[in-house]
Nucleic acid binder design. Structure first.
Lengths: 171, 171
DNA sequence: TTCTTGACTTGGACTCCGTCCATCGTAGGA
DNA sequence: TCCTACGATGGACGGAGTCCAAGTCAAGAA
């Protein structure tokens, strides 16, 4: 039973370690730093208790055109905060989605992806080959394209458009 | 080890039993019967070996505005062919999708849904409350809404539009 | 009608994704 | 500094889907 105690002792490492390949998360870009602190400020303003885990998850997600799965977020977060748990990542992602700071993207693959670009309306372009995702902004308003007689009494509030094709690398 | 033999003996029941509540699958509608035999003919024409399992899966899916999960397809198929396995249902659905006879619909829920209305281009309207799905036909062509400069070199071949809202019952 | 054979079916093991829960730790206010 | 409610943890759990070896059968040939 001593093993259990050892495990418990090892459990609460909340000191952050430097991320070995922290690229693309955007924290080195001065604009991104501002956006990042904006996000953290907004979260704090909404009564979020600012723990190291939540900060790391928010930082991992922050950046342009990043569409990570929950597992990828967990892996990246764990580079900086090795003891962070999967459950915490799922909880935090769920909260960020509820707060409207992050969008859930259901592509055809099995895992949902999380898109931090939630404040600008946009749609997605998915490569059928490699699964990569780009944010795109189609002309026109797809919601307006649905005439009343095609709504069947539904109160329609949102529309999600996913374009599919092959990216330049896969084509 | 006798149990194993008994199980094996019971395994190959391929005689169909009447479906206790076979409504909505459309086989009682004369037009549907025609569509159904059309579908079976097409499949046979494509070299499909016509097994009772495949026939039952195709029949279950056939019908207007039916959007079942794989498990629901399995449950309905099992009413007529009690020994049909989950793996066979998944295989058959996958083949029907590959042949273009059925569309996969990824809603927000975890399970994919299967839409036999694959020959007429349409989009989907999903109720955020109960998860029900309707086929709809928006005006305009959403593919044409994506300008070249927003395609990032992708060879775009398809677009999937999902409208979300509350159905009359949930609103 | 019988035989042959390769495509199909089966059940169970397995993986992946996500949720739940009891327990423990700690951020932030008093 | 102390308290405590909120948050983190890991492990169990469940749903969805895939894989595989072994057994079965549809359909063509004789």
């Amino acid at each position: 039973m001593d093993g259990v105690q050892v495990k418990k002792d090892a459990k609460r490492i909340t000191r952050r370690v430097p991320d070995p390949d922290c690229q693309g998360a955007g924290v080195h870009d001065p604009n991104q730093v501002n956006e990042m602190s904006d996000l953290l400020e907004r979260l704090r303003g909404r009564g979020w208790r600012m723990t190291s885990q939540r900060r790391v998850v928010a930082e991992v997600l922050d950046g342009d055109h990043v569409h990570l799965t929950a597992d990828e977020v967990h892996a990246r977060a764990a580079r900086r905060l090795p003891e962070i748990s999967r459950a915490t990542v799922y909880n935090t992602l769920g909260e960020l989605v509820q707060l409207g700071e992050v969008m859930e993207v259901a592509t055809d693959g099995r895992a949902k992806r999380y898109d931090p670009n939630a404040h600008r309306p946009h749609q997605h372009l998915v490569c059928s080959g490699c699964g990569s995702i780009r944010d795109v902004r189609p002309a026109g308003d797809p919601l307006a394209d649905l005439p009343a007689e095609e709504r069947f009494g539904f109160r329609v509030s949102a529309v999600q458009v996913t374009y599919r094709g092959l990216c330049p690398d896969c084509a």
